[in-house]
Simulated scan of single mutants.
Amino acid sequence: MGWTRNGTGTERVCGRVVVGVSGSPASLAALRVAAEEARRSRRVLVAVTAWEPPEGEALHLRHPDREWARHWWGEARTRLDRAFDDVFGGAAPGVRTERRVIRARPVRALSELAAHPDDLLVLGTRPGRHRPTRIHRRVRSRTDCPILTVPAPTVPRRLRRALRDMTAEDFALAGE
């Protein structure tokens, strides 16, 4: 990675820290680690949520609807903003941040944003996952920058079972 000396005599890494954010526990863990890496290396944090129309691009191109596309863009933006609220309670402290909502498949969006060899791409993965996912393999084949994978926090088996059996009414009662 390239290093530059700024006016204060301290060094920082060139490039950006790019992180994919979907709202999953793994992506929230990746966002937290990416912000810390950006803060430590004094790089810009670029958080990206990729989206496509739920019916797919091919069908949308046959029957384009700007309002429908705007709706799904807004949903993706809300998901990205909610991730920042969940992880940091708003903005990432002490980090210059760019939030991007890109209409593309995640592989394309992430590999185009992390195109420079001095960038760092941070991706979340499920806990206990020892092999890279399809998205990880595809991104790795399309970019030259280092990739840091961050596992989601593990949830104890008993708690997973209890959460699986809960209903919406169980959560509504918690607020009373």
Rank of each mutant, 00 (worst) to 15 (best):
E55I: 13
T8K: 14
T133N: 11
A162H: 07
H130V: 12
H116G: 02
P127F: 03
R12A: 07
F171A: 14
A92F: 03
E176C: 10
R160S: 09
L163F: 12
A76D: 02
V87R: 13
G74I: 00
T8M: 11
L80A: 03
R42I: 00
L173W: 11
L148K: 08
H71K: 14
L121G: 05
E75A: 11
R103H: 13
W73I: 00
S24D: 01
S27Y: 03
R103P: 01
R108C: 00
F88P: 02
D81R: 13
P53E: 07
V101Q: 05
G9Y: 03
R129D: 09
R137M: 10
P132T: 07
A38Y: 04
A76T: 02
V18P: 05
H60I: 00
R140E: 12
P132A: 08
W3S: 11
T10D: 07
A152L: 07
R32P: 00
E176H: 14
A168P: 01
E98K: 12
M166R: 15
A91V: 08
R40Q: 12
L123G: 03
R5W: 11
A34W: 02
E169W: 02
V17D: 09
R16H: 07
A109G: 10
A38S: 05
V18F: 02
V150Q: 03
R96K: 08
H136T: 05
V150T: 04
A162P: 00
T167G: 14
A69T: 10
T154M: 07
V87W: 11
R32Y: 02
P151V: 03
V13R: 15
V122N: 03
